[in-house]
Write a protein that binds this DNA or RNA. Structure first.
Ligand SMILES: NC(=O)c1ccc[n+]([C@@H]2O[C@H](COP(=O)([O-])OP(=O)(O)OC[C@H]3O[C@@H](n4cnc5c(N)ncnc54)[C@H](O)[C@@H]3O)[C@@H](O)[C@H]2O)c1
Ligand SMILES: NC(=O)c1ccc[n+]([C@@H]2O[C@H](COP(=O)([O-])OP(=O)(O)OC[C@H]3O[C@@H](n4cnc5c(N)ncnc54)[C@H](O)[C@@H]3O)[C@@H](O)[C@H]2O)c1
Lengths: 208, 208
DNA sequence: ATTAGTTTGTGAACTAATTCACAAGCGCCA
DNA sequence: TGGCGCTTGTGAATTAGTTCACAAACTAAT
């Protein structure tokens, strides 16, 4: 299959969230034009994005909301339940572990790791904080799909090495560092300082 | 000035963080090639990015680390202190309010708002949670530059309306909804569910 | 059955972003 | 001072991503 751009995948994800809203409103079909308006893009973009994976619409009618939702879920791999571990039981880790939105979409946090003796063994929601040193061993049994890394920047490269050795192939990284991983491991970074700097840039360069 | 792409601004932000690391190591100069390796891009990309704003390097030598850092800070508007308010004193809001990394970069959280009577008036770090209904009035005195929105998705459009009415021109949004704002307001979205779906897609479509 | 009114799917055209490639500038050394 | 080794800065070429524009396919109405 043709290589799919990251921007395309983001939009698919966005379309799916709109379809879920539309579905709750009880509407049965939607046009590319309407999806485009919701997403701040163009109808041609919507149709092109979808056409990379097949033809799901009916000419003159638009797309069936439940059918297209199903297709997008399939494309995005949301059919299955994913096993997620969180590394770093700190402030961000806590917010994420308690967030319901993830499980709703099939991302189940099944373990939390930390290196701090004071935190290890403590109960956290329905989980117990495990020592990071056990990650590799645990992974052979638990088979994590995704690691969410929320450790201090300076420790993160070492943490990520352990994650990779544990055979985990996808990482969502919150530390403001650039990770280097083997090519079969996918990384997404969430860097809030960078987002704020983007806003700072926008505020500083208006009307020029 | 020429329009600058968002991807360029992200990279500038990234280069700056590398330069700070390099500076701590005591190195005086760095080449575009080295910056490129750190950022996972090419040296031509680095030079092109920088050349949009001026010529900061010395041929044969590279870039002076402190000088380029200074230029980047200037370009990104990091010279001044920014006033940030957080809207939504929940799990994510709490993590952000307690995060030191922001103040270090000149983003000062000077107020927190919520609509929940049980939270209003409570102390939070060195701040007191204020009622969202007072945002507009407060803004005339406090002059917030950036609003960080961390409210439940369903309330967020209404919250953002209030933020816009308060005259705030930059929003960092954590709710998984698409915001519609006047064109003089800049929005950046942090959508973790979307990031996880990107990883799900990658895991589901390997080696095809 | 025909027609009018929609909306898709997709090559072609266009625009944006990245990479190439090389002249020009700089430091260093003899 | 001249030559060598590096590295920048930038047009030109290339590649990637978006938008245009229209034939084809469908519904509904008559
Ligand atoms: N808090 C925020 O709002 C925020 C915002 C943006 C980015 N971040 C980034 O997210 C990361 C975590 O931030 P935080 O505020 O949650 O920090 P925190 O200090 O609250 O939590 C970090 C946790 O990681 C644990 N840890 C340290 N080394 C470890 C290791 N080797 N293995 C396993 N666990 C280890 C610590 O014990 C601690 O519990 C940091 O990189 C930070 O820069 C945080
Ligand atoms: N917790 C996470 O890890 C996480 C992850 C991704 C996205 N998010 C998103 O971030 C947002 C906040 O999530 P959270 O987990 O912090 O939720 P939360 O329920 O812990 O906090 C939300 C806060 O917003 C306040 N609030 C509600 N309506 C308000 C209004 N009109 N004005 C001002 N305050 C209002 C609530 O009183 C509450 O304190 C949500 O949109 C959520 O989807 C959260």
């Amino acid at each position: 299959m043709k290589r799919i751009a990251e921007s395309t995948v983001r939009r698919l994800s966005l379309y799916l969230s709109f379809l879920e809203g539309i579905d709750r409103q009880g509407l049965k079909t939607i046009s590319s034009d309407e999806l485009a308006r919701l997403g701040g893009t163009t109808s041609a973009q919507v149709r092109k994005d979808l056409s990379l994976f097949g033809s799901f619409g009916k000419r003159g009618l638009g797309y069936s909301v439940p059918e297209l939702s199903g297709k997008l879920r399939e494309i995005l791999g949301l059919g299955k339940q994913w096993r997620v571990c969180i590394i770093g039981a700190g402030k961000i880790g806590a917010a994420l572990a308690r967030y319901r939105g993830f499980a709703e979409r099939g991302f189940n946090v099944t373990a939390v790791y930390d290196s701090d003796e004071a935190k290890i063994g403590k109960r956290w929601e329905n989980l117990t904080v495990r020592p990071i040193s056990e990650l590799e061993k645990d992974a052979t049994k638990q088979d994590f799909d995704i690691a969410v890394v929320a450790t201090p920047a300076e420790n993160t490269p070492a943490v990520v090495k352990q994650v990779v050795r544990a055979g985990i192939k996808a990482i969502l990284n919150f530390a403001p560092v650039q990770l280097s991983v083997p090519s079969d491991v996918t990384v997404r970074n969430v860097n809030m300082a960078m987002e704020l700097e983007g806003l700072s840039f926008a505020l500083s360069n208006r009307s020029e």
